[in-house]
Each structure stands twice: as C-alpha cells, then as structure tokens.
Design a protein around this nucleic acid. Sequence first.
DNA 1: GTCTATACCCCGATAGAC
DNA 2: GTCTATCGGGGTATAGAC
Lengths: 217, 217
Amino acid sequence: MLTMTIRREDILDSACRCYVEGGVAGVSMRGLARDLGVTAPALYRHFASKEEVMVGVVSEAYGRLAGYLHRALEGPTALVRFRLAGEAYLSFALDHPRLYLTMYAGPSFLGMQEIPEEVAQRGCAIGRFWNDRVRECIQDGYLKPGSPDEIGTTMWAHAHGLLSLYLRGVLPIPEEAFRREFDASFWRMMVGLGTTRFDDAWAGLQNVDVESAALTP
Amino acid sequence: MLTMTIRREDILDSACRCYVEGGVAGVSMRGLARDLGVTAPALYRHFASKEEVMVGVVSEAYGRLAGYLHRALEGPTALVRFRLAGEAYLSFALDHPRLYLTMYAGPSFLGMQEIPEEVAQRGCAIGRFWNDRVRECIQDGYLKPGSPDEIGTTMWAHAHGLLSLYLRGVLPIPEEAFRREFDASFWRMMVGLGTTRFDDAWAGLQNVDVESAALTP
DNA sequence: GTCTATACCCCGATAGAC
DNA sequence: GTCTATCGGGGTATAGAC
C-alpha cells in the first residue's frame, strides 16, 4: 500500500474540526488517522498521546480567542479598546461555544490529568490582556481607582459566569435576549466600578464599531 | 459462581465515588460492576447506558448542593439567609470542586448528547432558590429595587465566574487568599446593588454563623 | 525516519442461557 | 436478574517495510 507523509498541523486541524463537531468523544486517534489517509500509529510520530493532541486543541482555542481580542487594540481610546475587548470576548463565546467552554472545562473533562503549563499560561494571558484594558481605563479616569488586576478579575468573572450559565442552558432565553441581559447585568455591576466620566462616555460608544473604520477592514 | 442482586442506589454511590476520583474516564460500567461484585451487563437492568449513569451522578451533585443551600433557610432574617446561602454555595464549590464543575460542564464533557430535562430543571432550581433570597432582600430594603431574577443572575454569574476561574487555575492563589478576593470582589459588585441599609447591616453579620445556634446543630 | 501491520487490553453494549 | 460469550471500537506499544 502507498504511504503518505503527514504534518503536525494537519493532525491538529482535523482534531479541532472533530472536536467542535463531537467533543472529546468525537476525537479519536484512529478517526483522525482515517481522516488523513494514514494509520493510527503514524500520528504518534507527532504526538505522544491523545492527551497531547487535546492540549493542542485547547491551545488552538485560546489562540482563536486571542485573535478576536487583538483587534480591540486598534481602538483609538482606552474606553473604546475596553469596550471592543468586551464585545470580542462575548462574540467569541457565542460564535464558538464549544471552544469557549473548553478553555474553562477542567483537565479531567479533556482527558488530561492536570492542566499543562502551556494551557495555564494562555489562560493567564487572557486575563492579563483584559486587566491591561482596565488599567488604561483607570488611568484615564473612566474607572474608579484601585488594583487593575482585582477590578479586572471582577469583570471577567461576571462575564464568564453569565456566559457559562447561558451556554449551559441555565438561562433559557434566545441569544438576542441574552445579549440584552448581558448588557443590563454589566451595567448593573459597573455602577460600582465606573466613574461619572464612564457613565457619560459609554452611551456615545453604542455605534463605535460602525464609526471606526479601522475596525471593519 | 454465586449470583448476587444489586440496587440502583449502590451503582450510583459507586459511580459518584469513581467520578470524584477520576472524572468521566474514571467511571466505567465494567469498573462499577467489579466494585459491586457483579458483571457489567447486570448494571443494564438499572441503567440503559453509561450516559444514564452519568445523569444520575450529575443529579446527585445537584442534590448535594441543594443540601448545602437548604440550611440557609434557617437564618432569622432575609439578609442572614442571603449571606448563608452565598456562603453555602462557596463552601460547596470549594469542598467538592469536581462535583461543582460538573454542574456547569456542558453535556459533551459528560458523555451526553444533550442536557437531559432532569438536569436542566435542577440547574434552574438552584437559580430560583438564590433569586428567592434576593427577592426577600429587595422587599426588606437591603437591595435596591429591581427584578429579583435579573439582579440574582448578576450575582450568581459573578460568584460562579470567580469560582470557575479559580478552580480552573486561572487565579493562581491559595484557597485562603481566594476567599478574601471573593469577598472583596463581591463587595465591589454590591456597591451598585445594595442599599445603605445593606452596607450598615453587612458588617454586623461577620460572625452570624457562630452566633446563630440554629445553624450549628 | 516515517510509515504499515499487528497485537494487547479496556471499554460500551447486546444476545441468549440459567 | 444475573451470567457467559461476543462484537465493534478505541489508545497505544512493538516490529518491520521502504
């Protein structure tokens, strides 16, 4: 029989596709091999185990979220970058619910013993990116003074918690209603975190992504 | 060989123990059967599939959380019940991290196609219990007026989100530090949700569980 | 080096005997 | 209601072809 060579990247691509379709159970070494026109043991030239493949999938998920977030840096002011980052986070979670939940799923759900350092780092990096947006907004007087890390974590927790409840089906409402509830809940929380300057400026940002040409290339 | 009969309850007990120890992968029909001194096909008299066993495990997790929460009803005032419910929720999550994460894990992580109605109901019930505590506090003037469901969801999201980040390892701090950060973050959020009456009464509640004899039976 | 072929063991699930 | 026997599928270690 003919033999064909294979790239690590192709395995990961196939794994991501299978994962999005069918979760951890949808990813099997034999299945990936079949997809790629190869036999299972060949995959072990590139990955030591299925667990290592799954690490790659989770890493890829973080990479895609990072891609969504990165665009927020093009915003002209700290407050716009803050808002765009929040919107990007929300959009990623709603566009790719399974990948989103994967990033917070706990190692045993992904067939891992512990969270690999690589994955933990990526998780912390998301937090750092967000906290940087918060820091800017404190410096520019949009948010009340305080530790950017602690304040940022409060907001991150709120956003992730709400998304988690929604994606899990605990909030049985359609996506459009959820986006409204998300905004309302965010605003409720911001009463304690924003300054008057924040309140004044926030309303003017409703159409920022339409106005800012740099963000719709 | 001698044959022995088996109860559904025993299977579930064993399944919960195995699950807490090793996650979904730690639960196998053959393993459970071995634990119970029986062969695997015998289990299928009580459960149609492994998936159904896992539904039982998740249900059990919800039941245990409900047990934690139920004690909060013994508090003498709405604010005390509110606080005790919050503490119970936090304690359950920190005492049983794997069971806690299970309740929000998404069906595919538990080997299910969809969230069974039974599980969804239990999830909503937790929300309703909490929202009832919020409703009481609004009525008694501890929380600002508004929809109890929406305000309750905001707080639930914050608590779950923070716990989720911590249990996932995104906040690399010891449990004691996390409890402090949780309190601080909760307080930050409550600036926008509580009344002056809440602010005044909250400090006096720090030792409520020591003082209230009904809660340490 | 990179693949194929094979094999081992664990798993979920079913059929049919007692 | 349980057993034995069995099927299909999965992770992965090893041996050997090119």
